[in-house]
């Protein structure tokens, strides 16, 4: 464990807790893409299949349980909670996210480190996580503005992957044989997807005005 990875995990934890807290407190999920939340639930479900078979550390298992629990809770709130579900604008959140999953699955079947059931699904979860934010970013473009909690959610989510890139660089230089190209490229693509959002987020913060994403 290094400081970059710990910072990344804490930022990631903060992003899901900020979102869960927002939805639980104000009983609204306006501006949040259910499609992205569903994709994240699938990412965690396929990423942590080994939670029962391989034990790395208490921390590792605890965090996996938190991520699984929070992502499925967010989906549950948005789909089934009597008050929250009414605030979900389904006619704006129309990204065909199943079309994201198929290419990720095909790519995982083609490019992976080992051709085993767990490894292919694990690789699928990496590719899917890289693109899972797209429905949310499309929704933001459509709704034109962003309330600060959703903005914080995306900002933290982007930051977590940015910290992970620093972690991979650190581990590459400090641990022999630590080479995972698939993870690194998927993580880099994911962070680049956030780059333009970060740019507009920073502009809005600098000019102290409401964040307006260009159409």
């Amino acid at each position: 464990m290094n400081i970059f990875r710990l910072a990344g995990d804490m930022t990631h934890l903060a992003s899901v807790l900020v979102l869960l807290l927002k939805i639980h407190t104000i009983k609204s999920c306006a501006g949040v893409s259910l499609k992205t939340q569903e994709l994240y639930a699938i990412v965690f479900a396929t990423r942590y299949l080994d939670i029962l078979t391989s034990f790395v550390s208490i921390y590792n298992t605890l965090m996996k349980l938190i991520f699984l629990g929070s992502s499925f809770s967010i989906v549950w709130y948005m789909k089934y909670h009597k008050t929250v579900r009414r605030t979900y604008d389904r006619d704006q959140d129309t990204f065909r996210h199943w079309f994201l999953m198929l290419p990720c699955l095909l790519l995982a079947l083609l490019i992976h480190e080992k051709f085993t059931f767990f490894e292919v699904l694990w690789t699928f979860s990496l590719y899917l996580e890289a693109v899972a934010i797209l429905p949310q970013l499309v929704l933001l473009q459509r709704t034109r503005n962003i309330d600060n909690l959703t903005g914080q959610y995306i900002f933290l989510l982007g930051g977590y992957r940015g910290f992970y890139i620093l972690n991979w660089i650190y581990r590459y230089f400090t641990e022999p044989h630590y080479v995972h190209w698939i993870t690194w490229i998927a993580g880099l693509v994911q962070t680049l997807l956030y780059a333009d959002f970060f740019y507009y987020y920073f502009l809005s913060w600098k000019n102290n005005k409401k964040l307006q994403l260009p159409a």
Partner: peptide, 10 residues
């Protein structure tokens, strides 16, 4: 198993 393989990241 060889350490490099263990999935120790979230």
């Amino acid at each position: 198993p060889d350490k490099s393989y263990e999935k120790d990241e979230l």
